[in-house]
Design a protein around this nucleic acid. Sequence first.
DNA 1: CTGAAAGCGCTTACAG
DNA 2: CTGAAAGCGCTTACAG
Lengths: 328, 328
Amino acid sequence: MATIKDIARLAKVTPSTVSRVLNHSGGYSEKTRRRVEKIADELHYQKNEAAVNLVAQTSNLIGVIVTNATTSFAAPIIDSIEDWAYQNGGRILLAHCGLNDSERLKTCLNLMAGRKVNGIISVSVQFDENNLKLLDQLQLPLISLGVKVSNQPMISIDNLKAATTGTNYLISRGYQRIALIAVDTSDPQTGRTRCAGYQKAMESAGLTPSIIPGDYSFAAGKQAAEFLLAKGELPEAIFAASDDAAAGVIYAAQEHGIKVPEQLAVLGFDNSSVASMIYPGITTIDQPFKQMGRLAIEHLTNQNVSSVELPYQIKERGSVAKYNSAQS
Amino acid sequence: MATIKDIARLAKVTPSTVSRVLNHSGGYSEKTRRRVEKIADELHYQKNEAAVNLVAQTSNLIGVIVTNATTSFAAPIIDSIEDWAYQNGGRILLAHCGLNDSERLKTCLNLMAGRKVNGIISVSVQFDENNLKLLDQLQLPLISLGVKVSNQPMISIDNLKAATTGTNYLISRGYQRIALIAVDTSDPQTGRTRCAGYQKAMESAGLTPSIIPGDYSFAAGKQAAEFLLAKGELPEAIFAASDDAAAGVIYAAQEHGIKVPEQLAVLGFDNSSVASMIYPGITTIDQPFKQMGRLAIEHLTNQNVSSVELPYQIKERGSVAKYNSAQS
DNA sequence: CTGAAAGCGCTTACAG
DNA sequence: CTGAAAGCGCTTACAG
């Protein structure tokens, strides 16, 4: 790999001058400029960013921590972060921390610190006590998407309101026996908040809440539906805590010859890619993932790291009927 | 951020000693060791990897280039690369190059070169002339997944054979009018090869091939099915060039009240996550994505960069009937 | 307009 | 067992 010195030697100038030319920082003759640039070109010179960062005392790196790549909604977020990076010459250091894997999250954090990232964006990552402490010691700006991490800034929708809105949407369509499923009740943030929102709406309407916990996955949704089916207690509508889970419900329903939405309405959460790939399309609560990614970057790069709450909306597709035909 | 010098000062030794202790390279007293480690700990010291890399002349970084995060099959590949990284202290520099965006790919390549990555893993990325030349100049080891990049090593399945196998599978089930859809015929590698495999199998069986090109997407699959439907020429079976496209076909079929697989069999390609989330499950050609990721890493780290061809297999689910009931 | 020097944070022979 | 020095590839005041 050619270095600045190689260029300097060939161009018969000092590294200082080469550096100036390559950085367009001015203070060299037109002639020198051309000579240096030509040689740099011929050598296919690539600046060693490690060296640059060392003197600049910055890494130009944004750390992104996600649980794993399979989480469907991580994709649009990473996409928007990457778009920013492309336009601004930033780079993305990616790490997966798994699910509730304290050791692995610790490794991720240390790795990010070692690379001196400018900031960390964590997507739906829960921090335990130890990692909270570590994060504090590392002094790295972090912005969390979707999950509240101690006193760190967060970008997310209002899960309580969203769950209430979703439930009310179902109620307003005429549904009464509505179950909330696949929601992680051990997750103090998202999970419990969504439960609370659902319960609030149900109780306000004088209806009895019924929750089947789960981990937001397709399997959890499928299991919940099968469980309900086996018990002969299929509700009129199922509010799934994620689109993956909604897909699981729809799968089970189709397997058992139950028509969606005629015999069972299904409301999802996220508006992730599956939502539109399944028939009938999943009516769901749209989370603005792309915007979340963009905002996270903006806040991090502007050092203006404060929490923000984004609007959500119901994306209507086919899995919920306009009116509850079962009632009419 | 504390540096090695800070530690040295507090521990009343020189940076050299601190370095030795922190790297466990021996040559210090037990007492010194304890003192240094204690102080490093108290300061929450994190080695500056940029500096380490500068002297070590390596970056410990693997560059991963994908078209975009939404490509469903990139996820398992990235997952397996990340797993390796976690276990081996490697780091992942992620970049998206978009679809046929020469400028962006160029930026990615330069970025990787600047960071002095140890190697690049590209996932389904096509290289045009210019970038091929750039890659050559940059002298970075690259291993490509799924797509042949000039004389670079590639890891993939045998697309020709896989397409033949898939087509024959359908034929052996009794289907005769079989269309291949959503395949990118402008893609000299994957696309055309799959076409060739399909055509070969059809012709060997004395059947007439029928191909509807597309970009492997859900939308392409849906459109193809709708087109066939509108023309009143729905075949007995559709071989979709990806699971996303297969999902599109199934969506269109359900919308039009056509039963899968009874009235229309659908065979997918990839065995990506959608395949099992749609009812009936998509019978598909399973590509060993996880293994591809693992192998790519192995080859890159062992400097043993040669092409390898991986086995594929048909994953049977519900979208193809065991026997063509329409015929019986 | 150009060069010499110091320094970013670390490692690693070389002395002692 | 420990330190002083040189160097990784770059940038940036400071002179001239």
